[in-house]
Amino acid sequence: MPISFQGCAFGHRRGSRVFTRLDLDVPAGRTALIGPNGCGKSTLLGLAASALRPGAGRVSYEGLDPFRRGNLARYRALVGWMPQGIRPLPGLTAREQVGYAGWLKGMSRADAWRRSLEALEAVELGPLADTRCSELSGGQLRRVGLAQTLVHDAEVVLLDEPTAGLDPEQREKFRGIVARIGERGHLIVATHDTADLARTYDSVVLLGRDRVRYAGPVAGLGALAGLGALAGIPGFAGEV
């Protein structure tokens, strides 16, 4: 199991709760994380990325708990996270921003610089490597975010709404990128883009309010659809 949540509780503010007790073993391979708005998909990815710290319980990757003494750096080096909002860092070019992300992930400056171009080429942004991030379009900025996640060769890649704002052609390209990531590591993608789930992902986790409603192969979601469990989730008309 790549990422495991055991009895996790989390609230953004004192008194509020997104999860009270979450138990989930995310399947290996390419996993889609779906659910209605506000069900905690981004929070779940934030916890998995160790950007957020659970109030109770533990998150682990192959038994490695990031919040145990001495584990944090090792854990973070294995996990890459692309949040929903990618902010351009003032004054930095796309390559500098991606290189900076690599450096923050513990790579040497030279390695980060070299790998930054490869990561940008992987998301087809090579020609814009020397353009300032503040001058990129929203879709291009999301691809910079993706490159930031790929730059340090993470074993687990967490993507939060990566196709939001992308045109159909870019979405198709993104599916190709997802396929390549899936070949060499684990991928968890929080998404509302539920078209072609079966073709893009191996498994799916369906989150409801404060609980996991389904975690398993994409094919198994069809039964739930028949029970009406997917009502309210954008894009679902009962067909997977």
């Binding site: 950007a51 973070r76 996270w81 860092l89 992300a101 992930k105």
Partner: peptide, 13 residues
């Protein structure tokens, strides 16, 4: 600085 980038940094930011 990039809030989310530094929130999951390996280096001691």
């Amino acid at each position: 600085g990039g809030g989310s980038l530094e929130a999951v940094a390996v280096r001691p930011v």
